[in-house]
C-alpha cells in the first residue's frame, strides 16, 4: 500500500521531472512531440478536474443555503448564474453544443455584458485600495519609510507632465530610481527566486520534499 501511495507517485515525479528538465536541452522533433504530448495530457487532466471544481463550488453553496449560513442568499446567485450560463452555452445559439461554438450568442452577451464589466469594476476598485494603502504606508516614521516616501514622490511626479514643469530633473531622477536601485533590487530578488525554484524542483524530483503528496513522510 505504501508502495502505491508513495513509491509510484514519487517514481512518476522523478521520471517526469528528469525527462522534462532535459527536454529543454533537446531540440529534436521527438523531444518537441513529447512536450506536446505532455501538454495535451495536462489539458485532459485539467478538463476532468473542472468537474471536481464544479462539485466543490456547488456543494459549498448548497451547504450554505441548507444551513442558512451568513449571506446564504448570495449562494442562490451562484446557482442561477451557473444554470443560465451553462444553459446558453449548451444551446449554442440554436446549434447544439457538440458543434463549434457560434459567435454572437446569448452566452457571449452574458460574458461581454455581465462578466467583463463586473471584472472591470472590481479592478477599478484597486485605485482606491492603492490610495488607502499608500496613505497608511507613506508616513515618515522611520528612516526606511522616509526613503520610501521620498522615492515614491519623485517617481510619481516623474511619471506625470507636472513633474517636468516643476523641474526638468525630476523625470531624470525618476528614471534613475527605476533603472538603477529598483532594477538592482528586482534582479536580486529574481536570482534568489530562481535558485529557490531550482532547489525546490530538485527536492521534489528526488523525493526529499513530499508534502505535496499529502503528509510528511
Amino acid at each position: 500500500m505504501t508502495f502505491l501511495k508513495r513509491g509510484v507517485p514519487l517514481g512518476i515525479a522523478f521520471l517526469m521531472g528528469v525527462l522534462m528538465a532535459f527536454q529543454y536541452y533537446v531540440p529534436h522533433e521527438h523531444s518537441k512531440a513529447f512536450l506536446e504530448l505532455m501538454t495535451r495530457w495536462d489539458k485532459i487532466i485539467a478538463g476532468f478536474a473542472v468537474f471536481i471544481g464544479a462539485y466543490s463550488l456547488f456543494h459549498l453553496h448548497y451547504t450554505r443555503i441548507k444551513r442558512r449560513a451568513a449571506g446564504w442568499g448570495y449562494s442562490f446567485f451562484v446557482f442561477v448564474g451557473a444554470f443560465v450560463t451553462i444553459a446558453f452555452g449548451l444551446y449554442n445559439g440554436g446549434e447544439a453544443f457538440w458543434h463549434d461554438k457560434k459567435e454572437g450568442t446569448m452566452f457571449d452577451w452574458i460574458y461581454m455584458n455581465i462578466q467583463v464589466p463586473a471584472g472591470a469594476t472590481i479592478f477599478s476598485i484597486l485605485a482606491f485600495f492603492m490610495a488607502s494603502a499608500a496613505y497608511r504606508t507613506f508616513r515618515a516614521r522611520t528612516v526606511e519609510s522616509t526613503v520610501l516616501l521620498v522615492a515614491a514622490i519623485i517617481v510619481m511626479l516623474g511619471r506625470v507632465p507636472v513633474g517636468a514643469l516643476i523641474s526638468q530633473y525630476i523625470p531624470v531622477a525618476a528614471d534613475w530610481i527605476m533603472g538603477v536601485p529598483n532594477l538592482a533590487a528586482k534582479r536580486g530578488i529574481l536570482l534568489g527566486v530562481s535558485l529557490g525554484a531550482i532547489a525546490t524542483s530538485i527536492k521534489i524530483i528526488f523525493g526529499v520534499e513530499r508534502q505535496y503528496l499529502g503528509g510528511g513522510d
Binding site: 530578488i189 529574481l190 534568489g192 527566486v193 535558485l195 529557490g196 525554484a197 532547489a199 525546490t200 530538485i202 527536492k203 526529499v208 520534499e209 508534502q211 510528511g216
Partner: peptide, 25 residues
C-alpha cells in the same frame, strides 16, 4: 520575499534534509 517562499516549507518542518537545501541556496 522571493526565495523565502521556497525556504518556508523547510523552515517550518525543521527537517535537516530540507534545511540542507537552504545551505545550497
Amino acid at each position: 520575499m522571493g526565495e523565502e517562499l521556497y525556504a518556508a516549507s523547510a523552515y517550518l518542518s525543521r527537517e535537516p534534509m530540507l534545511l540542507g537545501s537552504l545551505r545550497a541556496q
